[in-house]
Structures are given as C-alpha cells and as structure tokens.
Amino acid sequence: MQIAISIDDTDNLESRGTGALASLLAEEIELRRWGRSHYVTRHQLLVHPDIPYTSHNSAMCFTADIVPEYLQSIIDYAAGFLDRESATGSDPGLCVVPIDRLERCADLIHFGHRAKEVVLSKEDAYALASRSGIHLSEHGGTGQGVIGALAGAGLRLSGNDGRLKGCLPVAARNGCVSVAELRAHDDVDEVRSIDGIELSGDEQVRLGDKVKTVLLEGKAVLLIEPLAGAADGVAWQTCSKQRLKRF
C-alpha cells in the first residue's frame, strides 16, 4: 500500500530542519524493511501574523510503498521519533495518509490549497482527518503543527506544489549536459522549459551550482530556461533558486 507521511513545525532557530527529520524517517522505513520511501517535498504554507512559525512555515512530506501490516508500526515509530527529536519550543504535528484507502482525496487537496491562503484551525484539521481515515497527532507544544502536516500531505497528493528536498548530483562536462542525459537521471521524471518550449534530447544545458527539481503533475520536473548570450551550442541553463522560489 502507499502512504504519505507529512510533518510540520518540528524545529527552532538552532535545531535541524523539519526536512532533515523527514529524511531520517524515510530512511528508517527502508532500514527496517517496512517499505520503500520516495523523495521528500517541501510545501510553502501561508505566512500570517496569526500563525506561529519559526521562520518560514513550510511542511515536509514523502510517500512510501509499504507492507500493509506495518502501517501501525510506522505510525508508532514516527510519533515516537517526533516526540524524541523535535526541538524545544516547537509544536510538532504528524500526518500519515493511507492513500489507497483515502475516500475523499479531493477534500485533503482542497485543505492543502486553503492552508496557503487562509488561517485554518486545529479543529478544521482534526475534523477532516477523522472523516477521511487519516492519522493526525500532536507531539509537543501547542500541537499547531497538525494543520501544516495535514496541509503538506494534501499538497503532495495534489502533485502540483513544492520543491524536492536536496539537490541532484549530475556529472557534467565543462558544467554542461544534454537534455537527454538529464532525462535519464534516476531522480528526474521530466525536463521542461519554464516557458513551455519543446526540448529535443540533444539540447545542451549549463548546470547551476545546485540543480533542483519541483513537483508538477505528480512528477519530479527539472525546469530549465534560455541561457542569455548562449555560446558553444549551449542554449539552456537550469533555473536559479530565485526562479524556483515560487514553487
């Protein structure tokens, strides 16, 4: 079965980030042979004076294909992990969505989109989780992180929100690779021009210092943009962090 695990508000200004904890959880699922974890995505939520957050208000989510009988073990482990590892002063929340059994996926996605636009309450989150068969739990502080955790899962399942955590290791000659080589990368589902221009496999792409993908249409998409003053047949470059900020 496939599940989504989403966490939010686990950090403070001195601690590891929430993304690091999500990665550790994903690794532990594989180490314990409970299933196979997929990439972690970061989802931006509303920043508003009425919402407590450390510095950015983003949730982190990953999906995993698991052996069904380990679902409760995974929930228990993740809950204990957040109890132990979350930073002092944080308000951690954990959300585990059994995707195959989810009856009202559209409601969860809608909740995620709303959490980017309006201030939601814990009551809103628990009501949706309860009627949808979603695990939602608090692990310290005010537990406000349950709102972001649930929203993060909804945004991940929307398939059209967020950036993938981490950067792609890409071997390049003189800092350039072909579109075909990028398409063949294990962690890239698709290479697209940010302006929607069709790309052929032999087009050359100059790599930035960090190559990152975003989640679009349920795929890990590497966005590229025209390279100004192109020379030596290199007409494209990977998008800068600044360009990817809106994802």
Partner: peptide, 12 residues
C-alpha cells in the same frame, strides 16, 4: 548571519 537549512534557501 546564519545560513538556513538547504531546503529553505531561495537566493542564489
């Protein structure tokens, strides 16, 4: 200045 964790970096 204290650099944030990698996933929160937005400036080049």
């Amino acid at each position: 200045f204290l650099q944030d964790v990698d996933e929160e970096l937005v400036a080049d």
